[in-house]
């Protein structure tokens, strides 16, 4: 079944990488079809960034995300910009320290991903924590697949750190599911 996922944040948070990893995980390691399309402003840092993924067991024709089933946001601006497009029964996933919810939107899953990353020693892995959380919450990709995709997308000397970040996020996600 066609699933649309959107990641949003600001440039420099690794939003584009997140999309790429999810696409790679499902296309290469989960054996599904996936299309990933990035979109970013002309600024290299600080501007709005989003990445879009469509996952389907069937062939994917139209490649873009129009009404996401899952929206993952890591900035207030991205939340305000993209939340209205979320499907009625969609899941909103946020970094609870970076996004303040305005009005009630369906299901919300919160994680302090940046804070967790800081505790791990590198704020920059917040996106990987968030990816783990996304995988745990939605189960749209297997942990095995996303783990492989993360490991091949990060520099070798940061593999352990990223693996830890992913796992922390994933467990947090499983916990959310159970609750």
């Amino acid at each position: 079944m066609r699933r649309e996922i959107k990641f949003g944040g600001f440039g420099g948070q690794g939003i584009i990488l997140m999309g790429n990893i999810v696409g790679k995980a499902s296309a290469k390691y989960d054996g599904k079809n996936a299309v990933f399309t990035p979109s970013y402003g002309p600024e290299a840092r600080g501007g709005a960034a989003s990445s879009n993924i469509v996952i389907d067991e069937e062939e994917i024709d139209y490649p873009y995300v129009t009404k996401p089933d899952v929206l993952v946001v890591m900035s207030q601006e991205a939340y305000e910009k993209y939340a209205p497009s979320l499907k009625d029964d969609g899941i909103l996933i946020i970094d609870e320290d970076l996004v303040h919810l305005k009005n009630g939107v369906g299901r919300v899953a919160k994680i302090p991903s940046t804070r967790i990353a800081e505790k791990l020693g590198k704020r920059i892995v917040a996106n990987i924590v968030m990816l783990g959380f996304f995988a745990g919450v939605t189960k749209l990709i297997s942990y095995k697949a996303i783990r492989k995709a993360v490991l091949e997308s990060v520099p070798p000397k940061f593999k352990e750190l990223n693996e830890e970040a992913l796992e922390k996020g994933y467990k947090y996600g499983i916990k959310w599911r159970e609750e």
Binding site: G23, K24, N33, A34, V35, F36, T37, P38, I60, P63
Partner: peptide, 9 residues
Amino acid sequence: ESVAHMSEK
């Protein structure tokens, strides 16, 4: 541009 920037298998 669309085909150029979309990633797929």
